[in-house]
Simulated scan of single mutants.
Amino acid sequence: MSDFTLPPPDTDAAAHSARLSEAIRAEIASSDGVIAFSRFMELALYAPGLGYYSAGASKFGEAGDFVTAPELGPIFAACVGESVAPVLQQIGPDAMFLELGGGTGAFAEVMLKRLLELDALPDRYAILEPSAQLKQRQRERLQQRLTPPLFELVEWLDAPLPHDWQGVLFANEVIDALPTPRFAMRGGDVHEEHVVLEGEGFARALRPADAFLGNAVRHIERRLERALPDGYRSEVLPQLPYWIQAVSGGLKRGAMLFVDYGYPRAEYYLPERNDGTLRAFYRHRMHGEPLLWPGLQDLTASVDFTALAEAGVAAGFDFAGYCNQASFLLGNGLAGVLQRIERITDETERLRRTQEVKQLTLPSGMGERFQVMGFQKDVEFGAAFLAGDLSFRL
C-alpha cells in the first residue's frame, strides 16, 4: 500500500514523528551511515518518550491503530483465567501473576475478577509495562473498577523480576512487537536488512549477516530440510531464547502462556511467503511501509511458534500445548460464556457479546490467525490444551 492511501498525520503527530526521525537519522549518521532494521524497529517502537509504545498516543481500540482481544470485551480474559486457575491453585498462597504489556488494563481487570470467582487469586498481580502513559492509564482504570482489596494486589514493574518467584507469566501480542532482524538470501549467502538515509527519509539496504543471524537462518534451513531460495526475505528472532529467559527471570515453578498471531516454522517460511510477515498498522490500516512516520505506527512480524517452542524448552520448561485461539477458548470456559449470553435480557448487550465471541473465534476474525502456546514447570495446566491440539504441526 502506498503512503498516499493513508490518512496523513495531524500537525502535532507529524512534529512528533519528525523528532523521532531526527534522532534515528543522528544514530544512522554516527553509525557509518547504516543501522540494522531491528535497531530501527526498536527505536520506532521503544525510543524513550518518542517511540510508538513509549509515547502518549492512543494505540488500542477504535481511536487507535488496532484492537486486541482484551479490548473487545471480557470474554478473552475470563477464559484465560479459567485456564491458569489450576496452576495458581497448585502453587498456593505465594503464587504471582505477571502480565507482559498491560494495554489499557482491560485484561487485568477481568482476570482479577475471574480469579476471585474461581478462588485462585494470586498473592500479587504484576504488570511489566514499558510505557509510562499506559501505566498511568492502567492504574486509573483498575483503581476505578476494582474493589480496594483487588487493586492492592496490583503492582507495576520496570524490569523483569530480579528474584525467584512462582506463578504464571502471560503475554498477549508481545512477541510480534519484539524488534526483529530481517534477512535476505543472496547468492546462497545470508544478508541482513539495514536502514540507510535517503533524502529526508529512510531506505532499506542489505549487508552481509553476522554469524549470529547467519547461524539462525541456517538452523531454519536444516529444520526445513531445504535451502531458502535466492531473493527470499523474511524475519527470524535469534534472540528469542534469551528474551524468554530474561522475562521469566527466576520463575522456579509455574507456567508461561503466550498468545499471538503466527505460524509453525514450515508455514512461516513457505516458498510463496518470500517477503516475510513484517507489516505496519496505522489507524486500523495494515500496510507495507515500515519506514514511514516513525513513532506513529505499530510494526509487527508474525511469530514462529516452532521457534517459541524451542525457546521455552531451552529455558527449562516443559512444553504444555499449542492450539489456535478458538480451540483454546472453547476448551477453557467459552461454553459457559455462551450460555450466559443467551440469558442476557438486554438485546443490545447480547448482540455485543455475540459479536465479541465471533471476532474471537471465527476464522475470519482472530480464531485461527491467533494461536496459543503454554509451558509448565512442576505444575500441570490440566485441560487447558485438550481442545484442538496443533503440536503435531510444530
Rank of each mutant, 00 (worst) to 15 (best):
G295L: 03
V303M: 14
E347R: 13
A315R: 04
L351Y: 08
R350E: 06
V303P: 04
K358R: 14
Q359C: 12
L299G: 07
M286W: 02
A309K: 13
A311G: 06
A314K: 09
F328G: 00
F305K: 00
E368G: 11
L291G: 01
A326M: 10
E356Q: 15
Q371F: 12
Q325G: 10
L330M: 12
K358L: 15
K358Y: 15
F370P: 10
Q339G: 08
F319M: 06
R350W: 12
D346F: 05
Q297E: 15
L334P: 00
A309W: 07
L351Q: 13
F319W: 10
D318F: 02
P363I: 15
G365C: 14
G312V: 11
E347A: 15
E342G: 14
L362P: 09
M373D: 10
N324W: 11
G288D: 12
G316Y: 08
D298K: 12
D298W: 11
S302T: 14
G336A: 04
K377E: 03
D346C: 06
D346I: 07
F319C: 05
L308A: 04
Q325S: 09
A320G: 04
E289M: 12
F328M: 04
Q339H: 03
R353N: 09
R350K: 15
Y322E: 07
L292K: 03
A307W: 02
Q297G: 11
A314C: 08
R352L: 09
L338P: 01
T306R: 02
S302K: 09
S302V: 10
V357G: 01
R343C: 06
G365E: 15
